Computed example of a mutant assay.
Amino acid sequence: MSLDKLVESNYAQLNEIDLYIWQYILHHKRECQKISIHELAHECNVSHTSILRFTKKLGLDGFSELKFYIKWDLSQKSEFTPQIINEACDSFVKTIDELKNHDFTHVCSMIHHAERIFVYGTGVLQNDMANELRRQFLYSNKVLHIAGHGTELDTLISNVTERDMLIIISLSGDNEDAVTLARILKGLKVPMVGLAKTNNCLLSKYCDEMITFKYYTFHLGMTDKLYGCTAQFFLVADFLFLKFLEYLNESK
């Protein structure tokens, strides 16, 4: 079992500190295979006992076994097979089924009643989805404002109110900038909807609603990075807009 799957299967036992440790490891696996427990604790701004508690919650014997899993993850290579295409197609079908059966009533109500709607994406693909949502919702006379990064976020935080709403688009749902933004706006009582591949993420702790999708990844064999198909992001965009049109029709 990969470290990612190990975390996913034990997610219910993890607290916010555990998730921040995992977030650092997830994005720095190559560095983490070489550092000591004290160095990792320093990077995560936690105690070394917090690292040990995290490993125990995953069912591991300690930090050494955690590093073994990290090295094993990094060593995985892929020989491209037809099964990968089958798995990718299966993730598309499961995403469609999940979205078709998802109750969007509250999300659509939030969109309908919000004075202003802001959309924040954590990366290039997420920003593409944000722009696609903006294009689609113009057809229903709803203007979505794309929230930028840096000083633009500071301006957003300074001006947003509880009469507005924010849509946060993240793949993992554990992106540090997205989670920090969500935590701040939660304190300001701003309604929020999160989009991520799983409910088992930090973002879900702060958002009023989460929309999730199936996301299949595989090793390219050329780097230690995982590759995942991106159609799911745009399937979510399409379904959210279609469900909103359905909501407007039923409201009449």
Rank of each mutant, 00 (worst) to 15 (best):
G221H: 11
G59A: 05
Q83E: 14
G62Q: 07
M192F: 06
G173C: 06
F218S: 04
Q83I: 10
N101W: 13
G121I: 03
L66K: 02
L226C: 13
K205Q: 13
F63Y: 14
C207T: 13
Q232E: 10
D73G: 01
E176G: 14
K57N: 14
N131F: 09
I37D: 04
Y216N: 13
E209W: 00
E16P: 04
Q126D: 09
E209Q: 15
T155E: 01
E31R: 08
F104P: 00
F244M: 01
L202K: 15
Q23G: 11
M110F: 00
N175G: 15
V119N: 04
V119Q: 07
V179P: 13
I37W: 08
L245Q: 10
F118T: 07
V143E: 12
L248I: 08
L133C: 07
L195W: 11
G194S: 02
F244N: 06
S140T: 03
E31S: 11
T155K: 03
D177H: 06
L26Y: 12
A231T: 13
S64Y: 05
A231E: 09
N45F: 12
I35W: 07
W72G: 04
K189S: 07
E209F: 08
L188P: 02
D224W: 07
Y206D: 03
S158K: 11
T217L: 04
H48C: 09
T122K: 00
E162C: 15
N159G: 05
Q23D: 12
S47L: 10
Q23S: 11
E98P: 04
K197N: 15
S47W: 12
I17C: 05
E79C: 01
Q83N: 15
I25D: 02
D174A: 05
S204G: 08
I211A: 12
Q76V: 01
F213V: 12
H149M: 07
K5L: 05
C32V: 07
H28K: 13
N10P: 04
D103R: 11
F233M: 08
L156R: 00
V143L: 12
Y247V: 06
L240W: 08
K142N: 06
R116H: 10
R135M: 02
T198G: 00
D103A: 01
D224G: 14
A114E: 04
R53W: 10
L203A: 05
S140K: 00
M210N: 07
S251W: 02
L203C: 11
R134S: 09
K243L: 00
F68R: 03
K243R: 03
H112R: 15
E87I: 12
H106V: 04
Y139L: 05
F92C: 12
L188D: 05
N15Y: 00
D4I: 01
Y24W: 12
